[in-house]
Design a protein around this nucleic acid. Structure first.
Lengths: 251, 251
DNA sequence: CGTTTCCTTGACTTAACTCAAGAGGAGTGG
DNA sequence: CCACTCCTCTTGAGTTAAGTCAAGGAAACG
C-alpha cells in the first residue's frame, strides 16, 4: 500500500527498464528537481488546444486523459498513476489534441523541454528508457482499443480492473489484492464506453460472483485469477517482465 | 493517385516534420538502403510473441496491426499506409504484444537497430522526427479509442473513412476525393468493432445519403464535408499542420 | 468455368441504453 | 444537531442499436 519513496519517482520508474550509471542517475534526479506543482481534484492539468510546456511527471494522485466530442460525449483515453510520465516529448506535437485532468488532488513536476533533451543526449540508455515509457503507454492504448472493440461490458470492466491492479502493483500501491481506486462508476463508464447504469449492473455482477469487493475507494480483488479469466487478461502488453534486467550500465 | 517517389519514403515522411541538413538526409537514405523485402497479401510481417529485429518501413501496400483474443475474436488496431514506420524502436519492447499483417502485397525495408540508434545519435532533429512519428501514431490510437468508445456505428465507419482519406492525402495517394481502399467489409468490421453485416448496412446508408461511392477498391468521397460532419471528424489529432515548417536545418 | 470470397438482404434476438425514481452518504449551513 | 443539497449508487421497466442466423447473388480467382 505504501507508495515508493517520493524522492524520485521518475528514476524509480525508468529503472524498471534500465539500470543507470551514476551520472545518468544524477541527471535524472536533477531533471525532476523543479518545484512541485499541484492541481485540485477534478481540475485540468492541460486542455485540448494548449501548448505543452514540457513533460509532466505525476508524483501523487491519479490523472486521466480525455477527449470530448462536439456534442459533449466524453471518452476517457487513459489513466495515469503516480510515477507516470505524461506525454514524453509531448511538446513535439505542438498542440494538445486532448485534455488531461486530475481525478484526485494531483502533485506533479513539470520537466522542461531542454531538460528532456539533455537527458536524451546523455546516451542511448536514457534515451531508450524514455522510449520504453512512451512505448508501453502506446501498448496500453492498443489494448484499450481491443477492449472497446471486442470485449463485452463485463469483460471490459474486468479488464480495466485487472490492468489497474497490475499497474498499481508496479508502483507498490497494492497490498495483497487490495488497493485504492478513486474512480466513480461514471468515470468507469467514460473509460469503457458504456453508460453509468450499465457499469453499475456489471459491478453488481462481479460482486455477486465474488470476484471483487468495492466500497468507496477501497477495492479488493477477491479472486484475481477469476477476474483475469473473465477479462481474458494477458499482462504481456504491460511489458513488465524485464524490469531492470534488460540493459545495464555495465553493458 | 500517384504515390510519392519510391526513392525514399522515410525521408519524405520525416520531412513533413523536419527539414534536414545534408548529412542528416544522407544518413536517413543510408538507413533505408537495405534490401527491400516483400510479404504476400494476407500474410504476416511479424507475429505476437516474436522479437522485432528492427523497424519496418512500409514502402508499398497496406499493412495492419491486430490482436487476437483467446476465443478467436480479432481486433484491428491500426492501418499502415505506404511511408509509415512500423514500431519505431519497437525492438525496445523485446516481445511483440500483437501481430502485423499485410492487407495487400507489401514491400518494406527493415531498418536494423543500430542504424536507428545511429540516426538518433545524429542530433536532436532526427531524434525528434522519430519521436514525431511515434507520437502521431499514438495520437491516432487515442482517436480510435474515442471512436470505439463514443461513436455509434455510422459515425465510427465515417470517421475511419475520413482518417484514411486524410492520411492517404499526405502521401499523395488521393486524387481529388478518390482513392483506393483495399479493405473488405470484414476488415472494416474488425477495425470498428462491429459485425460485417452491420458494416454493410452502414455502408449502404452512407451510399444512400450520397456521401460515398465504393465499388471494389475504388473509393470516392462524394461529399467529404458531409462525411466529416457525420463522423464529427476533427483532423487535429493527425498533426498535419506543421509539415516541414516546425524545425529546419537553419535553426 | 467452377470455386471461393465477398457482398447483400430479411427476420429475429439480445446486449446495452434510456428514462425515471428512490436510497444512501458526504458535506454545508443554519 | 438537524435540514438541506448534491452526488453517487441502485433498481425497474421499456426501447433500441447492433448482433445472429441464414440464404441468395455477385464478383473475383485460379
Amino acid at each position: 500500500m505504501s507508495p515508493a519513496p517520493l524522492a524520485n519517482r521518475l528514476l524509480t520508474r525508468l529503472q524498471h527498464y534500465v539500470v543507470f550509471a551514476d551520472d545518468e542517475r544524477a541527471a535524472i534526479e536533477t531533471a525532476c528537481a523543479g518545484p512541485p506543482l499541484a492541481v485540485r481534484q477534478r481540475r485540468d492539468l492541460i486542455r485540448e488546444g494548449d501548448r505543452p510546456r514540457g513533460v509532466n511527471l505525476i508524483v501523487d494522485g491519479w490523472a486521466f486523459r480525455y477527449k470530448t466530442l462536439e456534442d459533449g460525449r466524453r471518452q476517457i483515453i487513459a489513466f495515469h498513476l503516480p510515477g507516470d510520465l505524461c506525454d514524453v516529448h509531448g511538446y513535439i506535437l505542438r498542440e494538445m489534441d486532448h485534455s488531461v485532468g486530475a481525478l484526485t488532488p494531483v502533485r506533479y513536476v513539470e520537466i522542461p523541454r531542454d531538460q528532456i533533451e539533455a537527458l536524451a543526449a546523455l546516451g542511448p540508455r536514457v534515451n531508450q528508457a524514455l522510449w520504453w515509457d512512451a512505448l508501453t503507454g502506446a501498448a496500453i492504448q492498443r489494448e484499450w482499443t481491443v477492449n472497446l472493440g471486442q470485449r463485452d461490458a463485463l469483460e471490459r470492466l474486468s479488464h480495466l480492473f485487472c490492468e489497474l491492479i497490475f499497474r498499481l502493483r508496479v508502483v507498490g500501491m497494492v497490498d495483497g489484492a487490495r488497493c485504492e481506486i478513486p474512480l466513480t462508476q461514471t468515470d468507469l463508464a467514460e473509460a469503457t464506453g458504456m453508460t453509468p447504469v450499465h457499469v453499475n449492473r456489471m459491478v453488481q455482477e462481479l460482486r455477486s460472483r465474488n470476484l471483487i469487493r468495492w466500497k468507496g475507494r477501497e477495492f479488493e480483488a477477491l479472486d484475481l485469477d477469476g477476474l483475469c479469466d473473465v477479462a481474458m487478461f494477458n499482462p504481456a502488453y504491460l511489458h513488465l517482465d524485464h524490469e531492470g534486467r534488460h540493459l545495464d550500465a555495465n553493458g
